[in-house]
Each structure stands twice: as structure tokens, then as C-alpha cells.
Design a protein around this nucleic acid. Structure first.
Lengths: 228, 228
DNA sequence: ACCTGAACACCGTTCAAGT
DNA sequence: ACCTGAACACCGTTCAAGT
């Protein structure tokens, strides 16, 4: 074991991994994944691009770390006392709102399933499935279904918001334009899409999102009843 | 209306949008999203980078078009005669395999929910929900749940495969390494993840994937029974 | 109408040199 | 131990000039 000296006292504003990650989050929130640049980051931190590499391995490391910071914060408040179902709904809604606020988190989570940020999510959901007394064999399936659903719907909601903002449009106006495009698709090939297009701008995302969670939980419950 | 002349006869090897898209797919399959470069593409097509811009708006247009070509091919065989549930399973499994073969499709689909490739998927699933006589109000929820689940699980499966290949490892060896890392997480904080780590390398992805589809379909069925 | 390829304004990353 | 900033090997995209 290397005899490492204890951390020396730091200047208040010295460069640290945490300060870099916070600056990265701010940059990502401001201008999306394209806005995260080692040059922009070094300007914001009043340093050179090379300095960042002393604390961060590379860009992918930085993005994962930023993602993990957001996820960890979101999952921090433990849902105490509530039923497992309510806890799952709370976890899901917390992530939905976090991804809505930080759209880049959605796509970042999707890329490296074995990394810590997603493991945190799977763990939290898994604990609740355990509390629900879901049989061991079904926990993996139910956990995958729930986490994929959460990431998928939240990510798509955030992508819509991001797209709207990028075009300088209000979210509702943007959805109206999408609905317009969809309603002009070929009637023979796209009957379903044309029909739901009208609903698109009016639906309440969070309500519909929770309805999907309940659908999966309902499937789990039905399966358990059948097994009895 | 502009009086446009009919398409003139083409040289066999002239540059067309379709030829560019096929070359892009080959490049993406070979070396992932990072491998798709206008320079590499122009070398493959024996032309200059500028020529591509005559047929393609920009890189995002190219990626969406490549994605759409793969999705359209995958959804092409219409599941005739089968029950709606079986049709949904067939659609899901087809996409799972397509995303496994073309890992970049997963992340590409996630980014622009309003674009044609995802609309194709939603339409196909929606038609089967209609055939299942799912009430109008539930079709959106069920469609979102199914499509998010399909894209999420397929995308994560493909990301694992991609990660393994990148590290020059066999898929199973890679999953064993992930399982090892997970089983060394803090026991107080990650009890669930530690427990399922052991199952990770042995599970059959396609079987587990279909089990999740059935879970969602089961939830839909349970909800219908309750409404009666 | 379609293609060429140099040029522009960027990237991530490295590394000798400093403190 | 940590930081600087020039340099390298790339990008996507544009555009005058060609056919």
C-alpha cells in the first residue's frame, strides 16, 4: 500500500472532481449534450482544458458522473412508511421530473446499463419489489419492465421538451405541430397514429405516465393471483 | 407546381440517397455511432464529403434515415392470422433482434420520438391494441408502456453486447465481470443488486424479454376484467 | 443537376513545461 | 501534486469551382 499523505488543505476555489461535475451539469442543462465541451468547461472553471484531465478520465466518464450526481440526488429522499406500490410510484415520478429538468440524463442512462447510475435505480425498485413479496423469479422481469418503462417514457417526454425549446416553441405548440404532421399521414398505413394524434397535445404526461406504472404493477398482481 | 422533368436514367453506380443510407448502415454496424463519419462515408462511396450533402440534409437526417430503413425492414413481414397478443410478441421480438444486430438503432430511436421510425413502431403496436379491443383511453398508455419497454430492454441488451465487443470479450464473459463488480457493492446499500448479480450471466435475454411483454399484456387484461 | 475538394470553425485528448 | 496551453489528429459543414 502506498503511504499517501492526507489530503492537503485546499484553496476554496481549487479544482476538484465535484466542482467539475457541477459545472458540467450546468453546461448540460443550459445547452444540452452538444454544449458539454472541454473548452467551454475550462472557460467556466477558469482553467485550461488539460487541467480537467487530472480529475476526469475522459468525456464519457464526465457524462456518467454528471448523470450519477443527478440520479443520486433524485433518489436521496427515502420514501418512508408508504406501501411498496406508493414507493415505486414516488421513485418513478421523481425520475420523470428529474429527466424533464435534465433531458440529457435520459439518453445518458440508456447508454451504459451496467454503470452506477442505472444500478441505483434498479436497486431502489428491486427493494420495493422485494417488499411486495414478488417471487424471486419475477423480480428481474418486473424490475426490467419498470425501469425500462420509466426511462423510456421520461426520455421521450424530455426529448419532446428539448426539441420544442430548441425550435423556440412552447411545448403545447410543438405537440400541436407534431399532431398536425401525424394527422396527415397516409390513412391506409397509419390509421392508429392518425387517430391518437388528436389526443397528443392535450394529454397530461404525468398522469399518463403513472397509469403505465399501474398497468405494470397490475400485471404483476394478476400473475401472483393466478399462481395461487 | 414546378414542371419537374422525370427522373433521368442513372448510371448504375450513381450516388443516390438510398446508396448513401446503405453505406451508412454498413459503417454503423461495423464500428458503431462513432464510426459514422462523412469522410469515412465518402471514402466508401468513392466521392467527396460535399457530394453527400446534395442528398442528405445533415448527420442527424442521415442517422434517422438509416434507423428508419432498419425499422421498416424489420416490421415488413405482416403477422397474418395470429392473435393480437401473438402479433405483439412477434413485433417485439423482431425489434429485439434487429436492435441486437444493429445496436446503434436503440439509441437513435430514443432521441426523436416524433420521427417516422418510432411512429412506425407505435402504429404497429397500436393496431394490435385496437384488435385486442383495448378501450380508447387505455390504448395510449398501453402503447407507451409496450414501446418503451421494447426499446428500453432491447437497447440495454444491445448496449451490453456492444460494450462486450468493444472490450474484445465474449458476451457471457462480460456479464460475468459485471456480475462480479455488482456482487462487490456495499451490502447495506445494494442488497438487491448483489442478490440478482448471480443470475445476470445465466439468464436468457429473449425469454426474459418476452416475459416482460406478457407482464404488460397481463396488466391490460386484468384492468379490462376489473372494468366489467 | 450533380459532384469535387479545399477551407472554416470547431472538437477530444496529449504532453512538455511550468509551479 | 497539480495546472497551463500549445499542438495533434480529427470532426461536420460550406462553398466556389467544375462537369
Amino acid at each position: 500500500m502506498v503511504n499517501k499523505t492526507a489530503n492537503p488543505p485546499r484553496r476554496e476555489d481549487s479544482l476538484t472532481r465535484d466542482r467539475i461535475i457541477e459545472a458540467a451539469i450546468a453546461l448540460l442543462d443550459d445547452s444540452g449534450e452538444a454544449g458539454l465541451t472541454f473548452r467551454a468547461l475550462s472557460v467556466r472553471l477558469a482553467t485550461g482544458p488539460g487541467a480537467i484531465y487530472w480529475h476526469i478520465a475522459d468525456k464519457s466518464d464526465l457524462l456518467t458522473a454528471a448523470c450519477d450526481a443527478v440520479v443520486a440526488r433524485t433518489l436521496a429522499p427515502a420514501a418512508a412508511g408508504a406501501t411498496p406500490e406508493a414507493a415505486i410510484r414516488a421513485i418513478a415520478l421523481g425520475l420523470f421530473d428529474a429527466i424533464d429538468a435534465h433531458p440529457w440524463v435520459g439518453s445518458a442512462l440508456m447508454r451504459a446499463p451496467e454503470q452506477l447510475p442505472l444500478v441505483r435505480i434498479v436497486e431502489r425498485i428491486g427493494q420495493q419489489l422485494q417488499a411486495l413479496e414478488v417471487p424471486d423469479d419475477d423480480q428481474w422481469t418486473a424490475g426490467s419492465a419498470l425501469s425500462s418503462y420509466i426511462l423510456g417514457v421520461s426520455g421521450q417526454n424530455a426529448a419532446n421538451a428539448h426539441m420544442a425549446r430548441q425550435q423556440g416553441l412552447d411545448r403545447t405548440v410543438f405537440l400541436h405541430e407534431v399532431a398536425m404532421t401525424w394527422s396527415q399521414l397516409d390513412p391506409g398505413e397509419y390509421p392508429y397514429t392518425r387517430r391518437i394524434a388528436a389526443r397528443l397535445p392535450h394529454h397530461d404526461d404525468r398522469v399518463d405516465f403513472l397509469a403505465g406504472i399501474d398497468l405494470i404493477l397490475g400485471g404483476l398482481d394478476a400473475k401472483r393471483r393466478r399462481a395461487r
